[in-house]
Design a protein around this nucleic acid. Structure first.
Length: 595
DNA sequence: CGAGTTGGTCGTCTAATAGA
DNA sequence: TCTATTAGACGACCAACTCG
């Protein structure tokens, strides 16, 4: 979204953010596939906006307060940390999967927080990196001019509220900003199908241009959300509401998901789960990945259970398929409801794995805190806490503990809504040890470098149960699941959020579903007992000539991060109580929102 | 050359029909 | 009566065409 905008078409929020804000945050994930031990590429959006302002040498201030002087090198479109970076990596024992949060002061200082990608919490050891020879020497060396000044500036801001002026600015912004329309439309179950094809060579970016541009009907009469909700039959109302979707809305789901296998996305409509109960497969997906004629398709849910479903060619749309017999059983067994998002991934020939993401407001109701954090602080956490947003505005949130996991519960939905949080948003929280969580804003994820990383790390953190309860999987389980990545986007607040999140509803199963649907013979034999009222016209050959402008290029802005792990060399000494407390109290985690 | 018009294509959705 | 299947209306999008 925001990232897709060109420099010349910045929103006013972006313009103000990049031109006037004193502090800029961004996040970088360390990948083994990149040479991160030698150099580190800064996020493209960051360097694009600030390249001209960046000095040749900057200072990195680690969590311990020690500073490192780092040389910047511009190559092509990218800016890299080079000289001195290796030392920083070594001194902090940075490893693959660690991720760093940088806070740039607008001049030459970057404050760095270092997080463990496994626990989503800070690496405690990073607070105990002491002044070492190299770091010390650099600090006092000829590059000290910038650093000294910067350190002073940091000290003045550290103890109090960060970036006072910008925060005030943002506060006004937040008050002005209406609730996120996009979120409501998401909840409004208003998306149409999307189709995305991915090849092994290009597993995530490629988007089939034609199919992703779905046509959303607009209602003849303008039904407002309110009027729709007032209808007696809410499902029908939702169905009507769904027609109000814009094309952009439809594409969002497709673009927020990526998979190494071909897939298509469907937003469940009334007719998918009631009445005839059919599911149409996008024509292009059918053409590319399904056999012609009647076939049976095996649908897998995320539990590994499977259903056999008839797939018949669509008469009106040649080469397209419609799921019919067996689809209803799948719907019932997996408790699929109107508005749910189903992602059909082709895992084998005629086998589709279906990810089902519930779209109810219950999906926004809670958010699990990182296990490491809650394990350490669960006993100290009050029942109600305060979330302080980047704007300075606060939200009261209730905490609930279930199965050893602590969740933001009551009020979280409001926080999500007010901040237009979506799938793949990335939040960093700072906990003050009592009842206040401050949300550090304006993180910029190194999109390209993060994409692959996120697929292996940021995983499903909470699963909504049909009864509204929440089941939280272990971090290890999360890690095993490949998670879609969405490009960083800008909220209506002008904030750039990132991170990978995925959530899905795990619905209860119907034990007999399989037996009900396994009676279909293969190859499928039509009954032949139906008669057509009218002769069917011979299928007209599809015109191959495409008119008009060619589809736009998929813009893959992959960037490489370079770095490698290194060994720990420094252990903590002279531990101060303050440092220890601070170490524990800062956390970062990914927000999982089911919609 | 650009704006407006037109017609083809195809996805969405409903209703009809027939089998179990 | 329920489920499976099919036909077709409707409507949006897009590209080619037309015209000023």
């Amino acid at each position: 979204m925001g990232e897709g905008r060109t420099q010349n078409s910045k929103s006013w929020e972006e313009e103000i953010y990049w031109s006037h804000f004193q502090f800029i945050h961004f996040t970088i994930f360390l990948q083994s596939t990149t040479d991160f031990q030698q150099q580190l590429a800064l996020p493209k959006i960051f360097s694009d906006n600030l390249k001209k302002k960046l000095p040749e040498n900057v200072t990195l201030k680690g969590p311990s307060g020690v500073v490192w002087n780092i040389g910047l090198n511009t190559r092509g479109e990218s800016v890299y940390f080079v000289d001195g970076w290796r030392r920083f990596v070594k001194d902090h024992s940075l490893k693959e999967n660690d991720f760093l949060v940088f806070k740039y002061n607008g001049e030459s200082l970057f404050e760095v927080l270092i997080f463990n990608g496994e626990s989503f919490c800070e690496k405690a050891a990073s607070y105990f990196v002491l002044e070492c020879g190299q770091a010390h020497a650099e600090q006092g060396g000829n590059k000290g001019k910038n650093s000294n000044k910067s350190v002073e500036e940091v000290n003045t801001t550290n103890g109090s509220v960060e970036c006072a002026s910008p925060e005030k600015f943002r506060s006004l912004d937040s008050i002005r900003t209406p609730l996120a329309l996009t979120f409501e439309t998401t909840n409004g179950k208003t998306f149409n199908a999307g189709f995305k094809s991915a090849s092994p060579e290009k597993p995530v970016i490629e988007v089939t241009p034609v199919q992703t541009k779905k046509r959303a009907r607009t209602p003849k009469e303008a039904n407002s959300w309110e009027s729709a909700c007032n209808k007696e039959h809410s499902e029908a109302a939702l169905s009507k509401l769904s027609r109000k979707l814009s094309r952009n809305d439809e594409e969002k789901i497709v673009q927020s998901f990526s998979s190494s296998v071909p897939y298509f996305v469907k937003i469940i409509k009334t007719f998918h789960v009631s009445g005839s109960c059919v599911m149409n497969i996008p024509r292009q997906f059918s053409m590319e990945h399904l056999k012609k004629g009647r076939i049976k398709i095996i649908l897998h849910n995320m539990k590994g259970e499977c259903w056999i479903v008839n797939s018949v060619p669509t008469a009106k749309v040649p080469k397209s398929h419609t799921l019919c017999a067996g689809w209803m059983s799948f719907v019932h067994a997996n408790n699929i409801k109107i508005g749910d998002v189903c992602i059909f991934e082709l895992i084998n020939d005629c086998e589709l794995r279906v990810r089902i993401a519930g779209v109810g407001k219950e999906g926004l109701d809670c958010q699990a805190l990182p296990k490491t954090f809650s394990d350490n602080l669960k006993k100290k956490l009050p029942e109600n806490v305060t979330l302080k947003g980047p704007s300075g505005v606060v939200w009261n949130i209730g905490l609930t503990t279930r199965n050893d996991t602590v969740y933001f519960m009551d009020g979280w939905q409001r926080f999500v809504k007010d901040h237009s949080l979506k799938e793949n948003d990335f939040l960093v929280f700072k906990y003050n040890g009592e009842s206040l969580f401050e949300n550090v804003d304006k993180l910029i994820l190194n999109k390209g470098a993060t994409k692959e990383r996120i697929q292996t790390i940021f995983l499903k953190k909470s699963i909504l149960l049909p009864n509204g309860g929440v089941e939280c999987a272990s971090p290890e389980k999360f890690r095993r699941t490949r998670t879609p990545f969405a490009v960083p986007f800008e909220t209506t607040n002008g904030k750039t959020f990132n991170a990978g999140i995925e959530s899905a509803s795990s619905k209860k199963c119907m034990a007999d579903a399989l037996t009900k649907t396994t009676t279909i013979q293969f190859p499928f034999q039509p009954t032949g007992k139906r008669t057509k009222k009218k002769p069917v016209k011979e299928a007209v050959p599809v015109k191959t000539k495409k008119r008009g402008r060619p589809p736009k290029d998929g813009n893959s802005s992959k960037r490489a991060l370079d770095l490698k792990a290194c060994n720990k060399e420094h252990s903590g000494q002279n531990i101060s109580l303050f440092r220890l407390t601070f170490t524990i109290l800062i956390l970062a985690y990914l927000v999982t929102i089911t919609f």
